[in-house]
Amino acid sequence: MPARESLSGPGAPGNARMLHLTGIRKSYRIGPVETEVLRGVDFQAGAGDFVSIMGPSGSGKTTLMNIIGLLDRPTSGTYFLNGQDVSRMRDDRLSHMRNRHIGFVFQSFQLLPQLTALENICLPLVYRGARRPEMKRRAQAILERVGMNHRAGHRPDQLSGGQKQRIAIARALAGDPAVLLADEPTGALDTDTAADIMELLVETNRSHGVTILIITHDPAVARGCIRQVRIRDGRISESHSRNPPCGAVEGEGPVVETGAQARAAVQGAGGPNRGKWPE
């Protein structure tokens, strides 16, 4: 598990090896019309990177996220995940890669209503063939990490939005993935709760070195991330990094080094941006 210090080492964002996408194109054909959603995206992220992806709707950010998450295949281009070429893998193999290397966090939580919090967290381990006691032990430990151990036996409908998202994050982390993909993770939450969730994500990134990619509409959330990427018309239009160890601070807002600062960033922005939170 790469520690925070390794950020400046070989696995650091500068020489990104975790995610390496080159010339990614994706087009969909609907009837006779072919629409190109991604028009040659080059993107890299290293171990422990913490990236926000912003862009207007229809810009292709969700498609990019689906491709990074191995739920979709690019029409052309190459994609290396953790050193493995995944662009031509068979479906079963992709399932395996998702299970081992990627954790998903969704705006709508996507918890299974019939399962308890603990059982939801166990799910990725089920597909790994873990034994029940081992699964429970691991899920319990992660539940504690997200501060939800008192809710282990609750079902999703007995939890608040923030609690659900914590469980969802715990589930994403249960398989000990290298990359965590979060699609509008705070989109369905109020400002305070959103700030809590951001704090949790930052802590997760800092203490466990998990690479995190967040799709967001919210500049405040983006400010909570170390690196910001903008996507427009199927291309990455802008990418700047505020890598704290390098001290390269630019733009507005404080440097985010801790979860508390991320929280402050989100909360501070909460007032003026409140109207932007999707209901």
Binding site: D91, D92, S95, H96, N99, Y127, R128
Partner: peptide, 13 residues
């Protein structure tokens, strides 16, 4: 089904 596929279920699972 979508969620299970995302977290690593194969088609046959």
């Amino acid at each position: 089904i979508g969620l299970r596929r995302a977290i690593g279920a194969r088609r046959r699972d």
